[in-house]
Every structure is written in C-alpha cells, then in structure tokens.
Design a protein around this nucleic acid. Sequence first.
DNA 1: CGTGAACCTGACTAAATGGTCAATTATCCG
DNA 2: CGGATAATTGACCATTTAGTCAGGTTCACG
Lengths: 205, 205
Amino acid sequence: MSDNPDQPLTRIQRQNRQIILQGALTAFSTNGFRGATIDQIAEAAGLSKPNVFYYFGSKDEIHRNLLTGLLDMWLAPLVAINPDGQPLDEVLTYVRAKLDMSRDYPRESRLFAYEVMRGAPHLTEILSGRLRNLVEDTVTLLRRWMDEGRLARVEPHHLIFSIWSMTQHYADFEVQVQAVLGPGHDPYAEAGEFLDQMYRRMLAV
Amino acid sequence: MSDNPDQPLTRIQRQNRQIILQGALTAFSTNGFRGATIDQIAEAAGLSKPNVFYYFGSKDEIHRNLLTGLLDMWLAPLVAINPDGQPLDEVLTYVRAKLDMSRDYPRESRLFAYEVMRGAPHLTEILSGRLRNLVEDTVTLLRRWMDEGRLARVEPHHLIFSIWSMTQHYADFEVQVQAVLGPGHDPYAEAGEFLDQMYRRMLAV
DNA sequence: CGTGAACCTGACTAAATGGTCAATTATCCG
DNA sequence: CGGATAATTGACCATTTAGTCAGGTTCACG
C-alpha cells in the first residue's frame, strides 16, 4: 500500500495515516527517533503494529513524513513577514508568532530539535536549500530596513537565530524552565513580555 | 568493582574510567541516551564491552556519572559572576564565557540538551535544587543592580534563559547554523559580536 | 447480495542490545 | 619469585525491537 505511486487515498487511509502520524509525533517528540518504538506509536494510535506497517513502510518513513509534513506550518511565520509593514512591528509579530507556536505545538518544536541535534539526516537538503533561501530573503529584507534607518543595525542571520533559539527554548527545555521558575509562573506570558521588551530595545532606531 | 564503597581507585581504574567517560560523552552527545550503545562506547574507548561493565555497572550509571561530573564545569561561569563588579560587564562576561563553553565543549552542551529534552530523569533534583538556588541568587543580584539603576530593568529569570538558549543554540543546533549561514562564516565570532551588542542595548541604563 | 479489493492481525523472524560469567592474563607487592 | 588481587575477554543469555507474512475480516460498489 505504501508503495502506491499516487493513487487517491481512501477515507480509511487518510484517517489512519493521520492517526499514526499523531501518535508518532508524540512518541518521537518525547523520546527522539531512536528512543521511540513502533509499539509505542501503534499503542498511541490505537492500532496493531502490523497495521502501522500497512500504512507506512518503515519507522524511517513515518519520521520523514512527519518532518516534511510539518515543515510548512513551522516556517509559516517566517514567510508571513510583510515587506511593506512597519519593520519593528513585523519583527515583533514574528517573535510573537514563533513563541505562540512553541506554546501551542511543543511536540513539533521538539521533533525538529531532536532531528537537528542528531545531525538532521532527514533534513539536510531542506536546511541548506529551502530554509536557507527563506532565511536569505528575510536577511535581505532586514538589511534593507536597516539601510533605510528603520531598524537598528545588527547581523540579520544572528538576529534570526536569536529568535529561533529563545522561542523554541521554552518548548524544548520546558522541564528546566519549570524547575527553575518554580510554581506560580506562566512562562509563556512572561516570555512574551520579555521578548517584546528585548527586541524593542535592540532594534529601535 | 563499581560496587566498591569508596576505596581509593588504582591508577588503571582512574585512567580507564576517564577513557570510558570520554567515549560515552561522544556517544551520548551524538545520539542521545537511547541512541548510544555500549558497543559504541566501548569502541570509542578502545575497550571490550565486558571491560566497560567492569568499571561501570550499567549504561545508566555511566550516563549519571557524566552528567553530575560535568555539572560543575557547566555552571562555573554562573558562579563566577562577581557581585562587586560592574553590572553590565559582569553580564557580558557571563555571556562570553557561556558562548566560549558552547564553542569549546559542544559535546557537553548536547549532553545536557538531550537530557533536559527527554524530561531530565537524571537531573530533576538538581534542576529544582542546586540549579534553581544558583539561579535564584543570580536573580536577586540582578534585581539589586536594576533597583540601583545600574542595569536596565528586565525580568531576570528570562534574561538568564535568554543567555542559556542563545549561547547553547550554537552548539546544539550547529548543523542548522552551518547550513543556513553557508561556508565562509565563523559562527562563534559573529555570535560573540552580536550577543555583546544585543545585551548592551538591552541592559544599558 | 456477492465479490474483489482494502484492511487487519496473531504469530513469527532476525538483528541489535544491555548485561553476565567463567576462565585467562596482567599487575602489584611482600 | 610467587601468590593474591586487579584487569580483561570470548562466549553466552534474555529482552527488545524493526519488520514479515499467511490468512482472516470488513468494506465498497456493481
């Protein structure tokens, strides 16, 4: 079945593939690729193990499917930066959107984190292809804004890295954040305020 | 041997334990705890597998040993903040030191990252104990400096998180940084400049 | 309703992996 | 030197785990 070229999927196929991917997302994002087992995935999906293999040919295929399938969603906020908007607003909106994604989709954040940390074997072409181009476009835009004096000057690549690292930190290192903050804190609310303040000071002209 | 109470270690014991821990650091930091195998560790250490077990009772024990053994080194820069120094200088020095650690000890950075991401089963007590206290002390100091008007006001916990996330990003997500920057960049040199600029603007009074 | 395709599963395999142990070799020290 | 202790290892075990397969069940649709 999984070696079907591109016949349209049946209702059950669409359904079960989705269910499996959801279970796999939970498993992979909790334990990493090697740490997650097909049994876990099957369990989380409520299907038998052979049935999982009926829909996906291998553990690897599930993983690749997840990564590429979620990439668009993950990069959407970057694409959404409006070249005709107010520079500072656009950056702050991007930061906000990225932080919201960490809050609302921590599993996805961790999935990507695990993959990049282990050397991104399933993402290398994308990292140095599509992602790199996307970043390059944004860098060009940011540099233009800086040239026009509408944004304080910093190295744009590293500005982007800073946004990625700080927002995803709250999802990927949640345990640490919780442990250090202790109870009675709303990490994402506080982080939102902090990041807003921080990027305003850094980028205001 | 590994169940010896606290007899002094022989020369060979000291040596081989060290060699094993180095091999394990490489293995764990590359593939995570579940992804690393004893065979890999033995191979990297140049010892036979049973011999590895002669020095450490289990894979878990090696891992725990590594984590706790490296913790002091990892937290040293935070401890080194001088309450009597110039506030901004102290923070910038801390940032610099943390960035240098990511550059010089990327394996250690990844080891901790993997551990925290999988829920820190071997670090929970430390995270909410010693680490938390250390952070709390630093937070108090930072707040005092802010009260005295010697540092711009931001939420100190999140200031610390920002330093952790941004510096460790360059070690943990090295593949992504390299892929996005492309050749002809010195990530750590650029990051040093960027972070200096960033924290100056954020914290200058 | 009937039939062929789609869907599902119990029982299995092969390989990987954490860990053990009896037996051998190296080292230390009186 | 010689015996005791430390260090080492080949061969092994039990479990886990990715993946298979023959055969059974359910579904879509004419």
